[in-house]
Design a binder for these strands. Structure first.
Lengths: 163, 163
DNA sequence: GAATGTTATATAACGCGTTATATACTCGCG
DNA sequence: CGCGAGTATATAACGCGTTATATAACATTC
């Protein structure tokens, strides 16, 4: 068995480690979505949720809302356009800005997800790390170990089952 | 100002959020490395550190050690080979396995980094989040806010300056 | 009102992770 | 020995982030 250097090095590799855990978590989230029969990628949800919460947004606002750069937002919105979940039209007062809104199909997906899949995911993640506390490195170790022990797709909110 | 949906959605977007923070942290780390005049990318350090700690390792062991998949390790090691930091030769007993070791240049880089740059990075990250405690979402918010307020490159271990 | 600067989006190229698959070597067994 | 199964690495293709730069529309200034 080889030692996990990223974990061993602690603060020195915190960036790598957060990325690694984030990727793992997102892959597990994707599995939950797939098992629910939804045809959407996990990374696209924040865009749909942003529009659902705030109404039509421009590309630039979407980039800000999901915390990525503008070219990244342009690309993902392009994909959502092709998938038919959003619609885009120039802002009436400024032809440079493009207002992105949900289509009926997109709104249906959001509405369905809000009821069925988002609570499921949030509950699974809460089960994984909702009760954690203490220094961040310890929590990250607990999250990594927790995911290895029971993948996200098999988790649900901790109830009083053991009672 | 647009709301940060990833932060707002909490556990639901934890994967995206960890990735995002990890990327930001790693980019800031890169800046520290660049400012120190070193010509190496932050993401390659874990590979060098793994070999430094454990001696020559195969591609597969390196992948395990840094927590990525084998093709990712193959690629990064290919780059380190081109940069002249590592050397690769078939294992004597099994021609399938390739043992990756540090070259003199690679060892020099590691030795120098261990003295000069790694402590600097670890101290900056510790300054950012070493004293944090509590639920993970709160710590992540503190880290994001902290990075926005004072980038990693301008941080150092918190001393009793305020005394 | 034409030149110039600024802002919003798009495009290109790259970094670094992934999965899927090909290839080369080793091992075990008839 | 030779052949099929398994293992280690390499390659290809893609996801999704980045930076740098091009283009189009608006704003300003003389």
């Amino acid at each position: 068995m080889v030692e996990d250097v990223v974990r061993t090095l602690g603060f020195l590799c915190l960036g790598s480690r957060l990325r690694r855990i984030g990727e793992r978590l997102q892959a597990d989230t994707q599995q939950v979505i797939d098992e629910a029969g939804l045809s959407i990628q996990a990374g696209k949800y924040p865009f749909l949720a942003a529009i659902d919460r705030s109404g039509p947004l421009t590309i630039g606002e979407l980039a800000q809302a999901v915390g990525i750069t503008q070219p990244g937002a342009t690309r993902t919105i392009g994909q959502l356009l092709e998938l038919g979940f959003v619609d885009m039209q120039p802002a009436p007062d400024d032809q440079r800005r493009r207002l992105v809104s949900l289509t009926g199909k997109g709104q249906d997906l959001v509405d369905h997800s809000k009821m069925v899949i988002w609570p499921r995911i949030a509950a699974a993640v809460a089960d994984l790390c909702g009760d954690l506390d203490g220094p961040i490195l310890e929590q990250l170790a607990a999250i990594e170990d927790g995911l290895a022990a029971v993948p996200l797709a098999r988790r649900h909110a901790a109830k009083e089952e053991e009672a």
